[in-house]
């Protein structure tokens, strides 16, 4: 893989010199992989084959996305033009690209949901929070000591891009509002 990577990097820099275009920058894509052998390698090929120079792979084994898949975060260098080609190639391979951008998930947001969380379809709630482009649900803990009859609680850890925590919170509030759930927010601007 590293041989492929350095070759790609050379090509990337050539492109910059030849065309005098935007310089190579670091990109992060967040992928969702089915937990089967070979999936990770299959996901890395479209990156290397399309001019991306792999920098790091964070394979969050043990962590599952709301759909039960494994989240993988890949950092690589590429020009802006090639970056778009890479994302297209990943999608063409049927790989779910949860998030793609030049920034990492800079901010983390922890909040509580309280109410009839299970009866109001938790996985739909999570899916809709993720559909808000600025957030990804990193983990969920659920406590329902009295079953589904009474109020239960969930702790959500969301990852958002820099400066987008407010938008992510808005998305959570609007879903919660619609489902009659209460949100215990982290303190904005405070030490939380």
């Amino acid at each position: 893989m590293s041989a492929d990577g350095s070759e790609v990097a050379e090509r990337g820099r050539d492109a910059e010199t030849d065309g005098g275009r935007a310089s190579v920058s670091t990109h992060t894509v967040r992928l969702e992989l089915v937990d089967e052998p070979g999936q990770l390698l299959a996901a890395l090929h479209p990156i290397a084959d399309n001019g991306g120079n792999l920098l790091s792979i964070y394979h969050e084994r043990g962590n599952k996305t709301p759909r039960g898949h494994i989240p993988v975060e890949v950092d690589f260098e590429a020009t802006e033009e090639r970056f778009e080609g890479i994302v297209d190639a990943l999608r063409a391979e049927g790989i779910n690209v949860m998030q793609a951008g030049t920034e990492r998930y800079a901010e983390e947001l922890v909040l509580l949901l309280v109410g009839h969380i299970i009866d109001t379809d938790l996985s739909d709630t999570l899916k809709r929070i993720e559909e808000c482009a600025s957030a990804s649900v990193a983990d969920v803990s659920l406590a329902a000591p009295k079953g589904t009859e009474e109020a239960s609680s969930a702790r959500l850890r969301l990852q958002t891009r820099a400066g987008e925590t407010t938008a992510a919170l808005e998305a959570v509030r609007s879903v919660a509002d619609e489902k009659g759930l209460h949100v215990v927010e982290p303190l904005a601007g405070g030490e939380a």
Partner: peptide
């Protein structure tokens, strides 16, 4: 509306 379970999750 804050149940004991919410405080437990927060404490974890």
């Amino acid at each position: 509306n804050v149940p004991g379970s919410a405080l437990e999750l927060a404490a974890e």
